[in-house]
Design a protein around this nucleic acid. Sequence first.
DNA 1: TATGATTGTTAGCCCGAACCTAACAATCAT
DNA 2: ATGATTGTTAGGTTCGGGCTAACAATCATA
Lengths: 302, 302
Amino acid sequence: MLDLRHYRYIAAVARNLSFRLAAAELGVSVPTLSVQISHAEDYLGMQIFARTSRKVWLTRNGTVFMAAVDDVLQSARAAEDLGRNLTRGMTGELRVGYVGSAAYAGILQKMVGRFHSCFPTATITAEEHVMEDLPRMVSDHRIDVALVRAPVELPPDLCGYALTTDHFVAALSQDLQVAGAGLPLRAAALRDVPFIVPEQEFGTLEVARRGKFEPHVVSTPGSLISVLTQVALKRAVAIIPNMLRTSIHLEGVEFRDIEGPAIPSGIVGIVRADEDIPLVQNAIAVTAEMQAEMWREKGVTG
Amino acid sequence: MLDLRHYRYIAAVARNLSFRLAAAELGVSVPTLSVQISHAEDYLGMQIFARTSRKVWLTRNGTVFMAAVDDVLQSARAAEDLGRNLTRGMTGELRVGYVGSAAYAGILQKMVGRFHSCFPTATITAEEHVMEDLPRMVSDHRIDVALVRAPVELPPDLCGYALTTDHFVAALSQDLQVAGAGLPLRAAALRDVPFIVPEQEFGTLEVARRGKFEPHVVSTPGSLISVLTQVALKRAVAIIPNMLRTSIHLEGVEFRDIEGPAIPSGIVGIVRADEDIPLVQNAIAVTAEMQAEMWREKGVTG
DNA sequence: TATGATTGTTAGCCCGAACCTAACAATCAT
DNA sequence: ATGATTGTTAGGTTCGGGCTAACAATCATA
C-alpha cells in the first residue's frame, strides 16, 4: 500500500517537473526519490511521469491521478492541523449546561458569544437543566461547564468561579399590605406570608433565619418566571435575585429590598478541578478574562 | 509526520475499541499496535484513546479527531481506486475529434453514448475540427480518437478502423437540366457543371476521373450543409456521402446516384498505432464491438 | 481472598526498506 | 566532440516497524 511519503514525493515531482529540484525541496537525494516514484508507479501499475534523462512531465493518466494525490495530502494536512488545534485547545467540543436564570443574567449569552469568536471552529452546545442536576453532570463528564445560581457547595472534584455578583430581593404580590411601602422589607414581616421558593432556595432560607420563622412554602416551580407568576396568583412572596427586576416586569408583582446586609447571589461557573481537555481549560481562561473585564467596567461606571 | 499506517491503526482501534481485536483485524501483534498508537498520540500531543488495562474508549478529543482520520483513509482509498481504474482503463480522459459529417452519420452520438455507459467516471470531450487537421492532432497527442470521412491515407504511426460504410452520390441543383432524370447520373454529363467541393474531395475527384475532365470548382465551403446551400444558390453540383440524403433536405437540391461502381465513403476512426493509454485502448475495443453489432444488425435487416 | 485469565505496556532483538554515495547512461550546450 | 546536467542502477548503512517474551493491571471465579 502506498503511504503518505509516496504521495508527498509524487506531488513534489509534479510541482517541479524535475527530480533534482523536487529532491532538493524534499530534502532527500535524487536516487531515493527516483526509486520511490518507481515503487509507486509499479504498485499502481501505471506511469505517473514520463521522462527522458533530460525532461520530466506528467502522463495523461498521471495528470488525472494528481487530483487524488492532492486530496490525500490535503486531508492529511487537515488531520494534523486538527490534531494540533485539539492539543492547543483551539478547537473541539464544549458542552455547557445552565440554569434558566443564567440566561436572564446575560452571562450565558456573553460566554457563548465569546467562545464562538475565540474558537470559531469549535462545536459549542448549551442546554438548560435544573440546578440540582448540573454539578453531577459536570462530575460525570456529561457536560464540561455548568452555570448555576450561587451559593452552591461543591464536591471536592469540582471547582467554581464567581462570574456575576447579585443579591436577593423580595418579589411580592401587590395585594399584600406589608408594612413600610418603599422602604427595605423587614424579614419578620413575612412570617405569615405564603412563600414561592425558586430553585436556589438560599435567599428564602436566609430571610426565614433572619425573621426567625419557618417559611410557609406553598409552591416550588421550575423557572423564575413561574415563581413570579405564582407570586401574583397566590398573593405570596418569593426571594429571588435582584437581576430579575431589570429583566422581568409582571403585573401585580412588586420588588422590595430586604433589610439588613445584602444576601449574596450571582452566577457561578462550575468545572472539573482536574479538567484535562485543553479547549475547556482555554474556555475557562477566556471566561475568567471576560469576567475581569466586566468587573473592571462595572468598577469604572459605578 | 504521521503516515497512513498510523491512521489505519487508529481507525481499527476506534472500530473495535480493543487493541487485541484491532491487532487481529490488522494482522499485526498487539505490542506493535500499542507502540504505533502511542507514537501517533505522542506526535499529536494528545490522547486519542483512554484505556485501563481492561477497557479502551475514545477520549473527547479523540472522537473529534476520528472524523479527520476517516477523511484521510477515504481519500487514500479513493486515490488507490483511481489508480487501479486508470491502469485498467476504466476511467481517465478521452478526447475525441470529429468532422461535422460524423455527427450526420450518427456514429459520433453512438460512440459518445457508449463511452459514457461503459466508462461512467471518465471525462469524455468531443470537438469538431476540419478533416485536414485531425490526423495530425492524433499524432501530436492533442486528441486520442479522430472520426473522419473515408477515404484517407494515414502516416505509419496511425491506424484507422472503418466504422460506417457509405458511398458518394451527386447533389445537384434542380435548375440544372441534366439528362436522364431518375436514372443514375453519368459522370461525363457533369463536365461543364460548376462543382462545390466538400472537405472530403475524393468523390469529386473520382467522378472527374470517370468523366475524363477537370472539374470546374467554384467553392469549397467548410460544412456539408454549406455545400448543399451553395449547390442550390450557384446552380452547381456536389459529390457527397449518400448518408446526407436522409439527414438533410434542402429546397432546390436533388440527389442522384452515380453510374458505375459505388464510390466508397463512410466514417473512419483514427487512433495512434502505439496507443498506450488503457482507457483509449478499451475505448477502441468498445467501438470495434459496437461496429460489429451495427454491421450484424444491418446484415439481418437488409 | 486468592488464583487464573484477559488485556495492554515495556524491553530486546530482527529484518526490511528508505536512504545515502558512487558509478553509469542519456541527453543537451558549447 | 566534449563537458555539464539529469535521471537510473548498484551496493552498503541505518532507522524503525515488526516480532516474541516478560511484565503490569484488571476482572472473574473459586
